[in-house]
Nucleic acid binder design. Structure first.
Lengths: 185, 185
DNA sequence: TCCTAAGTGGAGAGATTTGCTCCGTTTACA
DNA sequence: TGTAAACGGAGCAAATCTCTCCACTTAGGA
């Protein structure tokens, strides 16, 4: 793959991620192309179908989640408590809630493409480890399941209406704080 | 106003509320008319502009919020703690988060119609009373503001993707429980 | 029961949006 | 420097949406 093609591909994924977060998964291809600064044909060449594009977004996102875990792996041993809240904060900052719901919107497990199911399983696996460690350190109630924790994080990081963002800019942080507090034993 | 016209008006508001919750505020008028079981012309006669319709939804919704408070006013004196969680549960069941964000989506305080601002103020007033009482009874931390509490409730009651609803049907209840726990002193 | 003003439905014209392809031009890199 | 790879965007067909017009129906008072 030529270097310029690779760069455009990444620009498309970034733009698509933003737009999907803002306007949902059915955001028109021409808007995505415009935001990415590429022609519409280039978008279609890289991602012939909408599913291809959504998978690209999801896979890119999982990479960033993994990076969060790695970044705090070292601190965990010395200070689990602050590593835990740092991880939760960083995960929240990725705005899972803006991206994931859009990716599965209106579909059941059955009609998700197999590749999407693999991504899903991988994501759950990543979170499972870190949650188990938090529970082992007494930072989270034992009866919290990975699924609940993860979806909860997603719900809290859904984009807020602009009206709210301007009036209560700390809303997302506040929610995460209340959430972690509510999860404590 | 003729009785049948009144009935249709209410059917329209109900249908519009559902659809706005499901698909956002720009849901096409013809879909709303179809779900309400009325002709498109009837919809336009009752609500000439989209803003008229959204205001109708908002005002209807405030009425239901008020009903929740009234329903628990009696219990409050005898058992504040369970009245409080019952109110929070019932408010959550109204799915504020499905309706309100759509009503203000993409608008700043300035370009909301005056009537919408009045509704907003009224809603905040309703919640302020009940939150103050909860705080007076030591059920909620003193440093929680009405706005944070209310928006938080909204965020937690946003509709979940169907995939989540079928896999984790108790998700909304679980979130409210964690939320209330996180708000305790 | 009858009359009329109020209310209704839905076809459809016109405007807008969107998906997707085709092809002449540009560019990376061997 | 030559060529295969990559690009952009005009533009057509199809789908969607808004909003009006007008002939028909009905509630409810006399």
């Amino acid at each position: 793959m030529r270097a310029d093609a690779q760069a455009k591909r990444e620009a498309i994924i970034a733009a698509a991620q933003e737009l999907v977060a803002e306007r949902g998964a059915e955001v028109p291809f021409n808007q995505i192309a415009a935001r990415a600064g590429v022609g519409i044909a280039t978008l279609y060449r890289h991602f012939p179908t909408r599913d291809d594009l959504l998978l690209g977004i999801g896979s890119d996102f999982l990479g960033r989640m993994a990076a969060v875990f790695d970044a705090h792996a070292a601190t965990w041993d010395t200070d689990p408590s602050s590593a835990w809240s740092a991880i939760a904060r960083d995960l929240a900052a990725l705005r899972m809630g803006a991206v994931f719901p859009a990716l599965v919107q209106g579909r059941s497990l059955d009609d998700l493409p197999p590749a999407a199911l693999r991504l899903r399983a991988e994501g759950i696996g990543q979170v499972r480890d870190i949650l188990a460690r938090a529970q082992a350190n007494g930072l989270v109630r034992e009866d919290i399941s990975v699924e609940h924790f993860q979806i909860g994080l997603g719900v809290l990081t859904r984009p807020l209406p602009e009206l709210v963002q301007s009036e209560l800019p700390d809303m997302h942080d506040w929610l995460i704080e209340v959430y972690l507090r509510g999860l404590r034993p």
